[in-house]
């Protein structure tokens, strides 16, 4: 039997006020109090409704497909173009890797200290369907139906549309479902800007203008680029941020949609970059799982 005072609180109008008070307390509760149970509770509720959310995403894609799906070219041409883009990404990745290794060699020669761990031994990938987005706004997290049972680990890089870096897996990883933080919500991303047709193999990749993309909150990024090199609308931003997983390096992330001068700094320009494709618009996403020499998996370094 409940004590009389508790019973008194759980009747009629008092129940409403009791529930509201509980909601207010939970609303302002610190993260460490909520993290152990709220994500698990949400997953328990969400999992039975995944077929419904999945039906929703499928319907949305049928009724309002992403703009890229309207491409009038044949599927074979699109596939070949995607292959070309992937090759370009691999090429830029290897060039960035070469640049990084040269820096490591220079550092080793200068300090003769040990390079340390971090080298990749094995890379795996798993594909998951995008089953839900944030119901409250277009720029929130998305959920994919791949989880720890498929090898997904927190911090793994997520790709859509072949080689477009779409975000990172958050620490909310369930057995069959995981949450992806879109790249437009990351605090900052280091990148280099390349022409649409790819970079000149005869020139070092280090001369490509670098930028640190900061989210605008409208689903795009902005950055100030201090470079005398040519910067034009349509140029492709590729990830070069060492804090992100190795698999994300060299991947496409966005294209420049606006360039404007900064009056106070004549040599610098402010650019706005929009994502090439977003996870929320995709049907499926690829999660790359990195297994390191120290036995750890994934995660930004």
């Amino acid at each position: 039997m409940l004590p009389a005072r508790v019973q008194h609180l759980l009747t009629g109008r008092r129940l409403d006020w009791t529930l509201l008070a509980c909601a207010l307390v939970v609303s302002v509760a610190p993260v460490r109090m909520l993290r152990p149970w709220t994500n698990d509770l949400a997953r328990l509720v969400l999992v039975p409704f995944v077929p419904v959310t999945h039906l929703g995403t499928s319907l949305r894609d049928r009724i309002r497909p992403s703009i890229e799906s309207f491409d009038p070219k044949s599927p074979e041409t699109i596939a070949l173009e995607a292959e070309v883009e992937r090759m370009r990404t691999l090429y830029e990745t290897s060039r960035l890797d070469a640049l990084r290794l040269e820096e490591v060699i220079r550092g080793l020669q200068a300090t003769s200290t040990r390079a340390g761990g971090g080298a990749l031994l094995d890379v795996g990938a798993t594909t998951g369907s995008v089953v839900a987005g944030d119901p409250n706004g277009p720029h929130g997290v998305v959920r994919i139906n791949a989880g720890s049972r498929h090898g997904v680990a927190a911090g793994s890089a997520v790709f859509v549309g072949g080689d477009v870096f779409a975000g990172l897996v958050t620490d909310d990883v369930g057995a069959f479902i995981s949450t992806v933080l879109p790249s437009t919500r990351l605090p900052s991303i280091g990148c280099r800007l390349f022409p649409v047709e790819g970079s000149d193999p005869a020139r070092t990749v280090a001369i490509a203008p670098g930028a640190v993309l900061k989210p605008t909150g409208r689903g795009t990024w902005t950055a100030e680029v201090a470079s005398a090199g040519e910067i034009a609308v349509g140029m492709i931003a590729r990830v070069t941020d060492e804090r992100l997983p190795r698999s994300a390096l060299g991947a496409r992330i966005g294209r420049i949609v606006a360039v404007e001068p900064i009056e106070q700094v004549p040599l610098a320009r402010r650019i706005e970059v929009e994502p090439i494709t977003e996870a929320r618009d995709a049907i499926s996403a690829v999660v790359v799982i990195e297994r390191r020499s120290d036995g750890g998996e994934g995660g930004p370094r």
Binding site: A23, V28, L34, L41, A42, P135, D171, R185
Partner: peptide, 21 residues
Amino acid sequence: LFAPTVLADGSALVVPGPHIL
């Protein structure tokens, strides 16, 4: 429950409360 909040460290957290109120 369906709309987790993104924290500053990039993790997602479900906060059951703001929409209730």
